Amino acid sequence: MPDWLLPLLVPAAAALAAGLLVAAFLLARRRRGGVGEALAMLAGRLEALAATQERLAAATADRLRAQERLIADRLDEAAARTQAQAARIHERLAVIDSARANIEALGAQVGTLERILGDKQARGAFGEVQLRELVEDRLPPGGFAWQHVLSNGTRCDCLIRLPHPPGPIVVDSKFPLEAWNALRAAAEAERPAAARRFAADVRRHVEAIAAKYVLPGETAEGALMFVPSEAICAALHAEHPALVAEAARRGVWIVSPNTMWAVLTTMRGLMRDLRLKAEAHRIRVEVDRLMEELGRLDRRVAALRGHFAQMQQDVAEIETTSRKIARRGQAIQLVELPEDAPPPARAAG
């Protein structure tokens, strides 16, 4: 029962009970003949009933006002919650609109990508762009060449310049995707034929790479077939392992962007080791030249030491002669000769 219904039922029940009492009292007094007393008593009862009804009406009004205030507060709270929920719903709708816009943009990009992959020249350019980013990120500038022309007149997408062995390695980025798209779009009954067509196209591409890009004495004994999709490369290895093994026997290794990254990292380490060996050889040559110069310096210092020793000996002999000359001069000064005396004989030495 609602809380507001009880205050309304209480006065009605009280009035009904009072009426029943008055009716019973009148019946009793009528039997006894005391109508006046009954009327007086009835008037008193009615006055008391009126007062009680007034009090009940006042209490009912208070209860109704309290219920109205309570209902108003609850309505305000409900309105506030509704507004907050509406605000959250608007925020979520904004997020959903943004996500929908992103999905539409992504769908447009996917459509553009499908058009690119559907066109053979655009697909080749797309694979070459991926390959270019990988190669230029991992290898030094002098370690590769784009659109290099081999001795047989064939222009390759990329030539990685490794020393012999193994020699320069050619990377081809023009993977055939028509058969793959047909295989993906084929119905269940048409999938075996589509799979055979896909394997045949890949086999022809492997044969072309082996014939054009594997040149004994000029390139390495193998070449790389770059597949610009991890899903296609995984499908090749999982569903056509015999084809992958046949390509390896022909010297064509199938690589995806991730495996190409690992291969380029290994090649980068090999090139760095070769550069270190070349620099070590240059250092060895310079050290040998330095040792030759040190030997030449030792010989010249020894010659200078000999010249210095000879100079010391000559100076000592000169000093000895000077001392002898000084003694002879003193002796000559001490000799007193007569005026007619003959000159003394010249001493030898």
Rank of each mutant, 00 (worst) to 15 (best):
A78V: 05
R74N: 08
A79S: 13
G33Y: 00
L64I: 05
A43R: 10
D62C: 04
L70R: 15
T82G: 14
R69N: 10
T52I: 00
G34F: 06
R65P: 01
G19I: 02
G36Y: 11
L64N: 04
A80F: 00
A40G: 12
Q53E: 01
A38S: 15
A58F: 06
A24G: 10
A28I: 10
A50S: 06
L56K: 04
R88I: 01
M41R: 14
R63A: 15
R55W: 06
R29Q: 08
R29N: 08
Q67M: 03
L39Q: 12
A86K: 09
L70Y: 07
R29D: 04
A40D: 08
A48R: 12
A79F: 00
A80T: 05
F25Y: 09
L75N: 07
Q53F: 07
L39K: 14
E37L: 14
L42N: 08
A43G: 15
R81L: 14
F25D: 07
R88T: 02
R32K: 15
A78R: 14
A50W: 00
T60F: 04
G44F: 11
A51N: 02
L42R: 05
A51Y: 05
A28L: 15
L70T: 11
A72R: 14
R55D: 04
R81M: 12
L21N: 09
A50P: 00
M41Y: 10
R65D: 05
L49S: 10
G33Q: 01
A80S: 07
A43T: 10
L70S: 13
L64H: 09
A87C: 02
A57W: 07
G44S: 11
R88H: 08
Q83I: 02
G36A: 15
V35N: 13
E37V: 13
A86C: 05
R81W: 11
L27V: 12
E54H: 06
L26V: 14
A79V: 03
R74S: 07
E37Y: 14
R31P: 07
Q83D: 05
R55K: 13
I71L: 13
A24E: 03
G19F: 03
Q67K: 03
R63V: 04
R88N: 04
R45G: 09
A79N: 13
R45P: 01
L20P: 02
L49C: 04
G34C: 08
A23T: 09
A86V: 01
